[in-house]
Design a protein around this nucleic acid. Structure first.
Lengths: 263, 263
DNA sequence: ACATCGATTTCGGAC
DNA sequence: GTCCGAAGTCGATGT
């Protein structure tokens, strides 16, 4: 039996059900009318309403309303579940120390309470991350710029690790910062921070270039980059190729032969 | 009846159950062995395993394994739910355009399928945000520094909006950047970006101070602030007071009379 | 719709 | 444990 469900249980029955589910390491859902009280990194209160509460065997807890992808209240993995009956209500509690936190869900009525025995060994395989973009550039550095040579990834600097550090065709050092999606001002600041650090290392006489690589860039970020003498290269993280633009298309020299032969 | 549940339904029964739940605007959970396929901003695949799928009437969908606070796959509000039977499996699909995205969950077996009629009008009340910290400073600017005078919040600059813009006791412009928790290098960069922008506005002859306000700061961020001539002030977002430090405590002048009278 | 930025961000990796 | 940055981040606000 992989699912064990109670409908409209008494608080006492729900309590026993919950505690044995915690014991077995089941995943649990509780649906009913409740209030929520949180105190920890911040403090919150939530008045009465119908919500779905999910308790996982890794210690995480989620309180979901009928809206939003993000739970209205939660606690991350590593917390301790407990349950009890207080003042005629079922209290589901999650606690941890460091930081010291407590989440209480008080049910005035439980509509349904289910325990699921979970078996899951599969890992998610995801394509299109910043790491994928990096692999594209490392396997064919010319997609960044003709003559670019990567020398090091995750190279340490005073300001943190550089995504890619390399040299251009003239041997000038290049700091490359990668983003999987359209970039704004913060990415420009980040690149500047890294370029500043490398310039301090190399001394004021040596030129150091900074290149931001992303599928696209906002206007304000472009302004900031221009002001700092930094550069931008448009690349898609999934394909490693320049993204197709709706405007100004059709006149670019390609480094790969991916163009359709319709012209 | 606020909950409607099927145990080990046939795919066809689950399908009918799902479609009427979508119609009614219920919140839905499906538990069973499934695979997941996602294509959109990125691309992912997830092999077979037992998962809890939550579908909300606002169009969001969550696929939860037995671990992590974050769903292993999901779709944000505004998507369209649909269900069908394909190749002997129950397919639960979520789609949207702009961006063009598709999430498919294929159940080889459904253990339980529940529809919940949700009634929830309460809003979360939360204390301890950056906005709370700002209110503390605006209502008593001296907690930042004696003589500080706030002039404007969300003042626009070339680099974005400033949290607080004001003057110190000498009339020198001050850019204040607020963070509700311990800050690292990126907050220092952000403040620097804002101070640079204001200095460009005011001209090189005018002094402009930059103050980062947060409960604490990392060493690397301190280095960056020092290098840029920026300042740090320690304040807690919930209390608006200097946080209690384990070390070097006991010698600070308080602005509020919150100390215990045990000495 | 896009831009910008906060978040009880969460998460993973490195130290 | 802390630090640091990525994320299919999400979500809110303003334009």
């Amino acid at each position: 039996m992989t699912v064990n469900t109670l409908h409209r249980p008494t608080h006492r029955d729900a309590l026993v059900h919950l505690e044995s589910a915690f014991e077995r390491g089941d995943m649990v859902t509780v649906f009913g009318r409740c209030t929520v009280d949180y105190d920890g990194r911040a403090t919150s209160e939530l008045g009465p309403g119908d919500r779905l509460v999910v308790l996982k065997p890794d210690g995480s807890i989620l309180v979901h309303t009928d809206e939003k992808r993000t739970p209205v209240n939660w606690q991350p993995p590593g917390c301790t579940h407990s349950a009890g009956v207080r003042d005629g209500r079922l209290r589901v509690r999650s606690t941890r120390s460091s930081p010291d936190e407590r989440l209480d869900v008080f049910f005035e009525r439980v509509e349904q309470c289910s325990a699921y025995a979970v078996n899951d060994r599969s890992d998610l395989e995801l394509v299109g991350s910043e790491e994928d973009l990096r692999q594209h550039i490392l396997s064919d550095p010319s997609i960044l710029e003709a003559g670019f040579e990567p020398l090091e990834t995750e190279r340490q600097s005073d300001a943190g690790a550089l995504d890619i550090f390399g040299e251009d065709a003239e041997g000038v050092p290049v700091v490359v910062e990668l983003k999987r999606r359209r970039v704004g001002p913060s990415a420009a600041s980040q690149l500047r921070r890294y370029v500043d650090a490398v310039r301090r290392e190399f001394g004021d006489n040596e030129p150091v270039r900074g290149v931001l690589v992303a599928p696209s860039v906002t206007d304000r970020a472009t302004d900031l980059l221009d002001r700092e003498g930094l550069e931008f290269v448009a690349l898609d993280p999934e394909t490693g190729e320049p993204p197709v633009e709706d405007e100004e298309r059709g006149n670019e020299q390609e480094t790969k032969g991916e163009r359709a032969d319709d012209e």
